[in-house]
Amino acid sequence: MTLLAVEGLTKRFGGVLAAKSVSFALDEGEMLAIIGPNGAGKSTTFNMVGGQLRPDGGSVMLAGKDVTGLPSRALCRMGVGRTFQVAQTFLSFSVLGNVQMALLAHHGQTRQLLSDAAVMHRDAALALLDRVGMAAQAGRPIGELAYGDVKRVELAIALAAAPRLLLMDEPTAGMAPSERTALMALVAGIARAERIGVLFTEHDMDAVFAHADRILVLVRGEIIARGSPEEVRADPEVQRVYLGHSGTRAAGRARRPVHG
């Protein structure tokens, strides 16, 4: 079933057309990657879907409801979780506190003046941390964690709102290659088990070709190719404008374990 339907999204910055009538759809439990060279409009498109940017034209439908231009806090309440290129967490909180905070927000309890925040939603928060493999670190200040672990906690924060759609902006940026594979496998596992749709942008071709169900290639604000990883990799236009030599090799390498 179609979860996210994007129709004709358009955005101008000054005279520059950053996104030109971008359309795509995403099903429940599906992982859709947007790739493209720098400045191709990936972030612009992504931020229009995520509520950070208001589109100049077009529409975003979430499970049949028009959510075009809604701010991200409203999207969150409609079931859209979000992770950022540079992990965004609450640095002064513990790992557990970060997830508790997300749960407090999800339950609309942020305006309570007298209850004790430290004891609320502890078990639920621990369960979420357990799902991303971080329960053992629950008591530590999040600032002490390795970056890859911070990204896992960020995923737990996003999951706290029980999202139907996860928006992940370069989920593996800044991580070690081995951590990247593990994080993407974790995301894919959760997405498929819980029928969460995942829309992500990525520079790491290994991550894209190993985990995306479908790929959109964006160049100068337009989608120039779309399809399964195999179709996209075989597209000569994609190879010409984006992948170049080393990228094509990485794209080939990524599937090596699967095929051979």
Partner: peptide
């Protein structure tokens, strides 16, 4: 700590 994260969790 992070207005962006707070916004994204619905605050």
């Amino acid at each position: 700590d992070s207005a962006q994260r707070a916004d994204a969790i619905g605050i």
